[in-house]
């Protein structure tokens, strides 16, 4: 039997609870919603809606140096924005779910790779202070949970889950005392290293290897304060 309620609100919050900031993006339609998202594409590469079943947004890094791409809140800029203008998610209690398909990990750079999630900066290499993100990079064979503290110290904690080229659902949460990662509904791990210390926005970035094309697909991201 289908359950109905008066509102979407009541599916995710008790009526007695005042909902905190919540955001949902389906990445469909004829173009990226420019009222919400900005792009930083300083060199070559593209970030466009794909014309594929279940394709979502496709970020393409060509086989060339200087091919980093960033999608972030209102980051219509030619280079990194530090910090991004809109940061509504709490370092001490927030979570995100992203449905994403990374390319072969070695098609990304060893240093930067491809990352999605919370960040204070709109940053081409998932850099800057205060992040909690999931991703891959060129010299690691497994997915990683990245956390960066307020002084910019960064940890990329191994998940032990082999990085492949299939679609997966990633959920990350930061509580102020730990950050956790769940992949396809299976709880993977926590970390207490270099946790974010200030409010964050959403940043999606990819840096391709200079000799390989990297394609990253993303069709859903949801973020909320807990």
């Amino acid at each position: 039997m289908t359950m109905t309620k008066d509102s979407i609100y009541e599916f995710i919050n008790a009526p007695t609870q005042v909902m905190k900031q919540h955001f949902v993006e389906d990445f469909t339609g004829d173009s990226l919603d420019s009222f919400v998202w900005g792009k930083i594409v300083p060199d070559s590469g593209t970030a466009v809606m794909s014309d594929l079943v279940d394709g979502g947004l496709v970020i393409t890094n060509p086989a060339a140096s200087g091919n980093a791409i960033c999608i972030a809140f209102n980051a219509n800029a030619t280079n990194n924005v530090s910090p991004m203008a809109v940061r509504q998610f709490s370092h001490s209690g927030s979570a995100f779910i992203v449905v994403e398909k990374f390319d072969t990990f070695s098609n990304y750079t060893n240093g930067d790779g491809a990352w999605s999630g919370f960040a204070a900066d709109a940053n081409l290499s998932a850099g800057g202070a205060n992040t909690c993100m999931v991703g891959v990079k060129g010299n690691n064979t497994d997915y990683r949970l990245q956390t960066t503290n307020g002084s910019g110290s960064q940890t990329r904690t191994a998940s032990g889950v082999t990085a492949d080229t299939n679609w997966h659902t990633y959920k990350a949460e930061t509580t102020g005392s730990l950050a956790s990662l769940t992949i396809d509904g299976i709880f993977i791990m926590t970390t207490t290293s270099t946790l974010p210390a200030a409010k964050m926005g959403i940043n999606i970035s990819a840096v391709g290897d200079s000799s390989n094309v990297a394609e990253t697909y993303i069709r859903y991201i949801e973020a909320w304060n807990t």
């Binding site: 359950m3 979407i8 009541e10 599916f11 995710i12 919050n13 008790a14 919540h22 949902v24 389906d26 469909t28 339609g29 079943v53 279940d54 394709g55 979502g56 979570a95 779910i97 449905v99 679609w167 997966h168 659902t169 959920k171 769940t182 396809d184 509904g185 299976i186 069709r219 859903y220 949801e222 909320w224």
Partner: peptide, 23 residues
């Protein structure tokens, strides 16, 4: 009953959600 997220209204976390659109 409430769900943990909008995602989980239509999919368990163990299912990779397909394309979805709402306007």
């Amino acid at each position: 009953m409430t769900y943990g997220s909008v995602y989980e209204i239509t999919n368990p976390l163990t299912t990779v959600a397909k394309q979805h659109f709402v306007d």
